[in-house]
């Protein structure tokens, strides 16, 4: 085996093969990019409000307690489908009211229960956050999560 597989052959297979897989990966990524924009997230327009909502989500580092589409921290519930869980996916006004009510009630202060912090969020931002979560919830995630519990 050492006759056939010399060091320089091994090196050339490594370089050549890697370039091949990079090319395939880049092509599939480009295709996936289009799929996301044209199909998977096309259910609701990506408005200025949704963009602002994403910014609010990031500014408060929600991802370091919650998962969103199953990614993030595992300390608090999944929020990619929270609007479905609350039954307000199709009602922006109710979605805002539910979210606002929830956020205002934090931290619960209940002894022995995980605490969600209080965040400084204006009404405009809170509406945007609700829209962002509704927008995320309509993404085609190949039917994940398995049920509304998230």
């Amino acid at each position: 085996m050492s006759e056939i597989l010399t060091k320089s052959r091994a090196r050339n297979v490594f370089y050549g093969g890697s370039i091949f897989f990079v090319v395939v990966f880049v092509a599939l990524t480009a295709q996936s990019h289009r799929h996301i924009v044209d199909k998977a997230t096309a259910g609701m327009p990506l408005t200025e409000e949704v963009r602002l909502g994403k910014h609010v989500w990031e500014r408060n580092s929600c991802i370091n307690c919650h998962t969103l589409h199953g990614e993030g921290a595992y300390f608090a519930p999944e929020v990619g489908n929270v609007m479905t869980r609350w039954g307000v996916l199709d009602d922006p006004e109710l979605a805002y009211e539910m979210l606002d009510g929830w956020m205002q009630a934090q931290p619960s202060g209940i002894e022995g229960r995980r605490q969600m912090p209080h965040f400084e969020i204006t009404e405009e931002e809170m509406r945007a956050l609700a829209e962002f979560l509704r927008w995320a919830d309509q993404t085609d995630t190949q039917n994940w999560p398995p049920n509304d519990a998230g």
Binding site: S18, E71, Q142, P145
Partner: peptide, 13 residues
């Protein structure tokens, strides 16, 4: 490289 796909199951990809 293509193994990255194991993160592309449920995020809209």
């Amino acid at each position: 490289i293509l193994g990255t796909g194991h993160h592309f199951y449920w995020i809209g990809t």
